[in-house]
Write a protein that binds this DNA or RNA. Structure first.
Length: 268
DNA sequence: CCTATAGCCTGACGGC
DNA sequence: TGCCGTCAGGCTATAG
């Protein structure tokens, strides 16, 4: 699930639960999640520290420790966080488990182990090293920035929206949702979108992401006009009832309504 | 610069 | 019920 809205909800969750508590113990159940640091070192470095504040850049969560360093969390395709008390309630697939002095626990859950956890000195340096583009909900990500980034871009619009090096935060599901709301086919060439189309797309991007965050990134709570809850094989368009179609874009499955978003660039 | 593919992992689901 | 193929909200490396 973790695209920008999901990760933003994780941030709010951490803000409301796990901050300002001394870390007592850290268990690592899978090394696969840790690339740059050993489980042994992660445990010793975190012990006796506390989580003090949380930032998000794209799909990454950056959690600052009381010594100034940063715990970086990425969630792959299936990651999530859970804060709980009794170990009897320990969730399945928790790859890292932090125990706090107050008796509560924070679990980093990742059934498919495609996520990533790191410990870094500087948040900005991490973002730069990953070559991430600006966060699409960042304060300085205005319409000019959006159109500048896309001008001269040669490929398809869905690929561009999902390119984390270009702009950070949007993934497969929300790129589909944004393009659905705009009535743009996912394979549309960026160069075929005029300036006013880009302005409208930018506005829709903001609206979709903010709506998702406001509804807790829970598709069941999304407006009836949203694609996401219908986004599966055999699903139908919430606006016109047409059966949704699936095409590959950037190696991912893109769902769209052929009635509202057209049949695609090649045929007319 | 951009696309397609495979791989990393593992679970869920549909068909036989 | 069991087995098998396909697919899954991410990202990277590789080849064209």
């Amino acid at each position: 699930m973790p695209e920008l809205p999901d990760v933003q909800v994780f941030k709010q969750y951490l803000d409301a639960t796990a901050l300002h508590q001394k870390i007592q113990d850290v268990e690592v159940h899978s090394e696969r999640i840790l690339e740059e640091i050993s489980s042994q070192r992660l445990a010793t470095e975190l012990k006796a520290r506390s989580l003090e504040s949380v930032r998000r850049h794209g799909k990454y969560l950056l959690v600052q420790l009381d010594d100034g360093r940063w715990l970086v969390l990425h969630f792959g395709m299936t990651g999530e966080l859970k804060y709980f008390k009794d170990l009897e309630r320990e969730p399945e697939y928790d790859q890292v488990l932090i125990a706090f002095a107050n008796g509560y626990h924070l679990a980093y859950i990742a059934p498919r182990k495609l996520g990533e956890i790191e410990l870094v000195d500087e948040a900005e340096a991490f973002v730069a090293a990953k070559d991430l583009g600006p966060d699409v909900l960042g304060g300085d990500f205005d319409l000019d920035t959006f159109t500048d980034l896309l001008s001269g871009r040669r490929g398809m619009i869905k690929s561009a929206l999902m390119d984390q090096q270009l702009m950070a935060g949007i993934g497969n599901v929300y790129s589909d949702e944004i393009l659905f709301q705009e009535g743009i086919h996912p394979r549309t060439a960026v160069k075929d979108l005029a300036g006013d189309a880009l302005a409208s797309l930018y506005a829709t991007m903001n609206e979709v992401l903010h709506t998702a965050i406001d509804r807790g990134a829970d598709p069941d709570e999304y407006p009836d006009s949203y694609l996401t809850p219908h986004r599966h094989q055999g699903g139908t368009c919430p606006r016109c009832g047409e059966e949704l179609q699936r095409v590959k874009v950037a190696g991912r499955s893109a769902y769209f309504c052929p009635n509202r978003q057209g049949a695609g660039p090649q045929d007319r």
